[in-house]
């Protein structure tokens, strides 16, 4: 056989493994880098979800970080996978993109299939014990600094909205690389508060011993932590109250998992059933607890109904909500 022919034959032999793409795997793509709460949630789910899907597929996690998960959200919209083999976890705030970022054409929450939200728990504002800011009144009237990452993150959006709605005196410091960098700055005393912290982080280690939990941020009062005042109780103006509710809505559908719009009905049913079974899987719940993850799950159809409700709110309220987070 001539040398060139031998090369061609070798090339095709080596090509065979690439053509045998496994159809048995389900991939969970995470819109953030390894190590964060989205990544942790995806990894604990990956360890158990396969048991509840037809054929018990192997579930793998891969990270596709970028633009606060918008990069992945765009890929979800463009995906042509119909067999349910690719699902994603993206920022809960993207569900409200048509309200807060109407120019954003990359992701449409009405097109994507929401499979589950892993937590609907409230978010909180915290201050270090050493700061002396230990009540909501002190928080709303004091002059101090609140740490935030990017302007699209809840660490900025929530305190910015509170500042406008209640005319507070604090200053928001933006540009932190991560929430943990904010925590370290609080330890040093450089800043005195952080908003948008979730239950999983709050019950992590000795956080509750070292920090004051100032206020609960959610649409409806949850009272998950005794004695923590509900922020919306302080907003008396009805329009501002409604706008603020809209701002805080993303925490009620936190850590969502979505399937691409192209997913077939059959595959979608399988995924929804799989996540529903996962929600009552004792092993999964125990594993999540062991990893410090606080769960309060909402099934996919309910998440979609909530999103539809939020997006259908009064346009005037949406305008005011947009104004609050600027």
């Amino acid at each position: 056989m001539p040398m060139a022919s031998r090369f061609v034959v070798s090339a095709f032999c080596l090509m065979l493994p690439a053509l045998s793409v496994s159809a048995e795997d389900v991939t969970i793509r995470v819109g953030y880098g390894p190590g964060g709460s989205y990544d942790s949630m995806a990894r604990v789910i990956a360890d158990h979800l396969g048991d509840h899907l037809p054929g018990s597929p192997n579930v793998v996690v891969e990270n596709l970080p970028g633009a606060g998960s918008l990069k992945l959200a765009k890929l979800v919209m463009e995906s042509t996978e119909t067999d349910g083999s690719q699902i994603a976890t993206i920022s809960s705030a993207l569900a409200l993109a048509p309200v807060f970022d109407p120019d954003n054409r990359a992701y449409d929450p009405r097109q994507a299939h929401y499979l589950i939200s892993m937590t609907s728990a409230a978010s909180y504002c915290i201050t270090p014990k050493a700061s002396g800011i230990d009540t909501l009144d002190a928080f709303l009237t004091g002059e101090f600094k609140v740490g935030a990452t990017g302007k699209a993150s809840t660490t900025y959006v929530f305190p910015a909205a509170i500042k406008k709605a209640l005319d507070t005196n604090y200053q928001i410091v933006t540009g932190f690389g991560s929430a943990t960098e904010i925590d370290l700055a609080m330890e040093r005393g450089d800043i005195q508060a952080r908003c948008g912290i979730g239950m999983s982080n709050l019950f992590n280690g000795d956080m509750l011993e070292r920090y004051n939990v100032i206020t609960e941020l959610s649409r409806e009062p949850k009272h998950e932590i005794d004695g923590v005042p509900f922020l919306l109780d302080r907003i008396s103006d009805p329009e501002t109250h409604e706008a603020m509710k809209l701002v805080l809505s993303s925490s009620s559908i936190h850590h969502p998992f979505v399937a691409p719009p192209a997913t077939s009905e059959e595959a979608l049913d399988d995924l929804l059933a799989g996540f529903a079974a996962l929600a009552t899987d004792e092993d999964f719940l125990a594993d999540a607890k062991k990893r410090g993850l606080y769960l309060s799950m909402t099934d996919g159809p309910t998440v979609e109904a909530k999103i539809a409700e939020y997006l259908a709110s009064d346009p005037a309220v949406q305008d005011l909500a947009r104004e609050l987070v600027q």
Partner: peptide, 24 residues
């Protein structure tokens, strides 16, 4: 502090939690 200085350390922090250890 339980405060990871990088993504690698954040993963290690998760591994601590997984094994029931609370850094600090």
């Amino acid at each position: 502090f339980g405060v990871p200085g990088s993504a690698s350390m954040a993963l290690l922090l998760g591994a601590f939690m997984l094994h029931g250890l609370v850094p600090g």
